[in-house]
């Protein structure tokens, strides 16, 4: 390493795109994480394209609501059985994910100050948030499957009677499906729900695993010895991307 200083100088003298240095002024690992996230964004986009096309080619007709109003389907809340609480549970899930995003970015910030104990604490909060979100999703899937939704079938084709029934109950009222409310609806509704939320849930799961690994590395002092906490930033990029995807899943699947 005798000529270390001269090597450094020769790198810095090169022009931006001449090679030997990062034209984006970020490390290799961080740049690759961004490129991976871009490709992952394309993957999710194809699913949302599919969903959008199916959603708007199966709209309301005068006789039946072919595509169910999603929030009316996901109207359950744990420990409040039989009450009509559309959108509430998903909003809580959204809140959990936003909160865990904040603790993640606070861990990144603590990493910039090289404060090992704070990084570890915020990583624990983030991991708890991720597990809480996954539990919520598991409960939602369980309820949805229990009510008759399958990957290859959809019993949520809402008839005119069911449509009127749904719109006669207020927020928080008791609600139960009556005979003739539901018929077989478009298969893509349930299939795309399971595929997209499942794919997103798998990303959350991977994110939790990555966060646990990074947490263990933090506690064992790997980053302290390395001299920087950039690995927290990379894990954070992935975690925020998962939150970002959820913003669009929430918009397209529950709101629209």
């Amino acid at each position: 390493m005798a000529n270390h200083t001269s090597t450094q100088a020769s790198f810095e003298n090169q022009t931006t795109w001449a090679g030997g240095r990062s034209p984006f002024n970020v490390s290799y690992g961080k740049l690759m994480m961004w490129i991976f996230l871009l490709s992952d964004a394309f993957t999710f986009s194809t699913l949302l394209v599919q969903y959008g096309t199916q959603r708007f080619s199966n709209v309301v007709t005068p006789i039946t609501t072919k595509w169910p109003d999603p929030a009316s389907i996901f109207n359950h809340f744990p420990f409040m059985h039989g009450l009509h609480l559309p959108l509430l549970f998903v909003s809580v899930m959204t809140f959990i994910l936003i909160l865990s995003s904040v603790t993640m970015v606070l861990a990144v910030e603590a990493g910039h100050r090289k404060s090992k104990s704070e990084v570890a604490r915020y990583m624990i909060y983030t991991i708890i948030g991720g597990i809480a979100f996954l539990s919520c999703q598991a409960w939602e899937w369980y309820t949805f499957i229990h009510e008759g939704a399958r990957l290859d079938g959809n019993t949520f084709g809402i008839t005119k009677q069911g449509y009127d029934h749904l719109h006669s109950v207020g927020f928080g009222d008791h609600f139960e499906w009556a005979d003739g409310d539901r018929t077989f609806g478009p298969v893509p509704f349930a299939a795309l729900f399971f595929i997209v939320t499942g794919f997103h849930g798998f990303h959350v799961f991977s994110g939790v695993v990555i966060n646990v690994v990074v947490y263990i590395m933090t506690v064992r002092g790997v980053f302290e010895r390395r001299g920087h906490y950039e690995m927290i930033e990379k894990a954070g990029l992935y975690w925020h991307f998962v939150d970002l995807v959820w913003v669009f899943v929430f918009t397209f699947f529950y709101l629209i």
Binding site: F11, R21, V26, S27, Y28, E109, H112, R226, G227, H228
Partner: peptide, 16 residues
């Protein structure tokens, strides 16, 4: 810390 390597270049980070 302080080692410069083109591929694993770590920019100076500070808390905002």
């Amino acid at each position: 810390p302080g080692d410069y390597d083109a591929i694993n270049y770590i920019p100076h980070t500070e808390s905002h």
